[in-house]
Design a protein around this nucleic acid. Sequence first.
DNA 1: AATGAATGAGCCTTCATTCAT
DNA 2: GATGAATGAAGGCTCATTCAT
Lengths: 205, 205, 205, 205
Amino acid sequence: MQTSDLLERCYPGRRAELKRSILSQALACFNAQGIEATTIEMIRAACQTSVGAIYHHFGNKEGLVAALFFTALDDQATLREGYLAQAKTTQEGVYALVHSYVDWVDSQPDWARFQFHARFAVTKGPLKDELVARNKARNRQLMEWLAEPGRGAELLRVPAELMPSLIIGQAESYCRAWLSGRVLSSPKRYREVLAEAAWRSLGSD
Amino acid sequence: MQTSDLLERCYPGRRAELKRSILSQALACFNAQGIEATTIEMIRAACQTSVGAIYHHFGNKEGLVAALFFTALDDQATLREGYLAQAKTTQEGVYALVHSYVDWVDSQPDWARFQFHARFAVTKGPLKDELVARNKARNRQLMEWLAEPGRGAELLRVPAELMPSLIIGQAESYCRAWLSGRVLSSPKRYREVLAEAAWRSLGSD
Amino acid sequence: MQTSDLLERCYPGRRAELKRSILSQALACFNAQGIEATTIEMIRAACQTSVGAIYHHFGNKEGLVAALFFTALDDQATLREGYLAQAKTTQEGVYALVHSYVDWVDSQPDWARFQFHARFAVTKGPLKDELVARNKARNRQLMEWLAEPGRGAELLRVPAELMPSLIIGQAESYCRAWLSGRVLSSPKRYREVLAEAAWRSLGSD
Amino acid sequence: MQTSDLLERCYPGRRAELKRSILSQALACFNAQGIEATTIEMIRAACQTSVGAIYHHFGNKEGLVAALFFTALDDQATLREGYLAQAKTTQEGVYALVHSYVDWVDSQPDWARFQFHARFAVTKGPLKDELVARNKARNRQLMEWLAEPGRGAELLRVPAELMPSLIIGQAESYCRAWLSGRVLSSPKRYREVLAEAAWRSLGSD
DNA sequence: AATGAATGAGCCTTCATTCAT
DNA sequence: GATGAATGAAGGCTCATTCAT
């Protein structure tokens, strides 16, 4: 199960066993019932521990949501950075963004589903600033990549605030549809189509 | 205030005054606090009625959400159908979809914001079938439009389940960003760019 | 039962029946177990209502404590003002203060006992300012009484901040002892001894 | 800092260093937040130990309260006995009681404040009998002092159960006011006034 | 149709205490 | 002796919903 792989990577060691178990079961509950509809008691029952242990490790329900959310964000960012590091041309960069997005959702559907539903909650919670900061950092990173010599010239005509939506919007839309069961084929099946579409839509002929 | 216009259109007359007031304030509360975080008491206080009146008109909280959600869905559909009716070629059809989407979000931002957040709740509620039915109807309608002689041939290469995301994904992504304050320019400013991008991404050169 | 008399006076009418019942039982519970050790559930069981009703009328546990505390304060003040209004000389004024204190404790032992234990809680709560204001008002009132022509001249040698303790300290001390069971005779038995002692202690020979 | 002095006197030596630290911080926490509102975790954080260490030394929270309470009681008694040993006449005895009370509160305000708030808790706890026993012992001691030839004859008219309140009531009342910030001058400033008032109030002219 | 007091299941959270290391 | 992770009973409080007036 890939969910555990990600957790083992982020919280390694035997000491963190309970922590991983809580996170794993919480993720499952949140996705199955929705975040608000999930009670601490459900999570407790799912990982056979005590409510005290959950609060000991995560402070409160919001802390649990935040831990999951930022774990997902980090993992997604790691994959994106890896893909981007190998891209040479602007086109390869756009492909890297689409491919990393699609591949991550395909390999971590549970984390992706949770990310969509938790974003709103995190935005209203006490870690909203942290989230804004990460978004800014991501955008800055992308801009720096484009600023390298011989890259990004083709995209100058596109308004900066529109760029992320043009590149990732279609993939995101399809991933949402897949994760909520409205379509059946994994987005990975269309990773090339989606990358090509994004690139064409940028209109650098 | 456009929110009321839409309500007046859907619930006309003096008898429905209270009903409109409740819906209007409920919409505001849901958007401000989130659906789950909004209590019936908050809505009652906002429109100076009694809880009994709210339950008399909408049955329960879920009924309130559903009324708002389907009102938005209907209004959006009406605009789309109007735009689509005037489109002759496939390209004009794609433009009509993007334009109607963008224009509706621009003119009804409160309803659009609510729609995004309520979809999940409705999907889990007792009206989920109604929602699925409407989605199917919309897709069927689109297919019928494309099936008319001299239309849609250019799109045959694109997988059907991918089509909606390719057409509307970018616009939707930008609208989300605007509604949540991450970007400042109204999507209407980019309606042409978004329509062209969608058309180009479909790759019918 | 005098406790109810006081309540009927302060919350009259049939509509307030439940409110009085809650206050009455809460007072009994607080005195029997202590404020912190009393749970809402205990009070609910004692007056056969629902937790919701308690919260509907008093907001929260602290609100219940505050309602009881200020009801007692008011009742005590009313008696004091009545006694004081009939005093002509300084000596009669001092006697009025001691007598009203002793008589009130004797006639409302439950409220008096509660007042002693609740003062600390109220001092830390959100109504601490209200309490400070009432104390000031009471002191001002007393000063005004003494400022009338032909009164208070005998007390000018006594420091103002010491005065309340000299007048009421002994009575208060004995009342505490009686309310906690350390002595058996009602303070009313010693009302004259206590008044005389207070007057003598002021040293106006 | 006098708080530590008292502790060093009662728990001397290097072995008891941790014990003194725990007691000292617990006293501070209890006074700052109230006994019930203070958690073991707060105390642990204040003296940088582990919860285990606290339980090892004091058994449980109640044990901590009791240790502090009886330490204060003992210290206060020691001072009183010293003062009383030097009194020859009845009047000197009354003065000794008032002076020792005032002087102790002035020199150990933290312990005095705690004593006021903890008395109720101890009264309900498992050491209530111990407390009753000490009170009786103190009263017996006082009676024995008065029973010596040439002493106490002046007080025979005063009821025994009223005596402690008449002697100490005013001082106690003022000390309470000072400890809770309602008056600003230390009771020590008024030690003579309070002693004279107590003596006068006993009415032995 | 309107009102709002009353209901009570259920939630999040706290915290004294234990015990394996 | 020291540590602190783990326990779980219990508490305050919320809030959708009902129903007598």
